[in-house]
Design a protein around this nucleic acid. Structure first.
Lengths: 141, 141
DNA sequence: ATGGTTGCAAACACTTTGCACATGA
DNA sequence: TCATGTGCAAAGTGTTTGCAACCAT
């Protein structure tokens, strides 16, 4: 017999959300993509996979999943919001402003910095954004 | 005789921009505000100071000043862009998600991190964003 | 059965653009 | 003078909302 290592439906129900087809599809989309996705790419994915949906619904889904802590919003100065699963280890992004490639970078300094901020400034950090914008290896000429 | 320590007009002309009343006012507004400003607050400031202007003009100004490297855009997940003078020493922000207060925080780790990224990943960092969102001292109860 | 979800249409907020007019250098 | 900057109107893009119909539990 097989043990399900992972099931999007359970994941959703654990946070009191109904496992609708669109939500399940969004979850598996997020799991298979490397880089943070925007709402348009989610809509494209759903359409491609035979799930008819409406932009308003997708925006609502992303907001709901964000509130539940399943995904995290992220912005790269593009005038829109991207999202990624929040159950990743602490990492940040290298965003190429020429070709749009997004690389991950992990680093351990932020947790320490947050502790320091808490101690010295009495500010309770709930989330942070650390992104580097520039030129990737191949776009530097 | 007095030596002008600082003149917004000269600052603008140095980057080949004409010193129009609106631009000069925006520069002095940016110099006197502590926290990054959004376009609406710029418009309010201009109106309050007797300078009639149009939103499109302000958006154009902010874009122009950004391209010239005089100001820097910054986003706090509010769905809009803020701006601040770029001739500040390296600093980041603590943004209270309850009352909106924005505190500055300076720190020296980023330059080192950028050097490391350049060396190890061959990624050329042009700019970065490091913001902490959470609750300020008084909003934690 | 019924409350959470969705679709649709409309509205919002932010931002950009084309073009004629105005103005700083 | 004349290239640069501005005002105005219109449009573009991302996002939210009200409400009726729908569907997962």
């Amino acid at each position: 017999m097989s043990i399900k290592i992972h099931d999007c439906k359970d994941e959703l129900r654990e946070v009191d959300l109904r496992a609708t087809p669109a939500r399940v599809a969004v979850m598996s989309f997020l799991e298979k993509t490397e880089k943070p996705v925007d709402v348009n790419s989610v809509i494209d994915y759903l359409n491609t996979n035979g799930i008819k949906t409406n932009p308003a619904t997708v925006f609502r889904m992303m907001n709901t999943l964000t509130q539940k802590g399943i995904i995290m919003p992220i912005q790269f100065y593009e005038g829109k919001t991207r999202y990624e699963l929040s159950n990743k280890d602490d990492h940040h992004h290298l965003v190429c402003e020429n070709c749009g490639k997004i690389e991950d970078i992990s680093d351990g300094i932020i947790p320490n910095l947050e502790k320091e901020i808490r101690a010295k400034r009495k500010f309770k950090v709930l989330r942070h954004s650390l992104e580097f914008l520039g030129l990737c290896k191949t776009c530097q000429h």
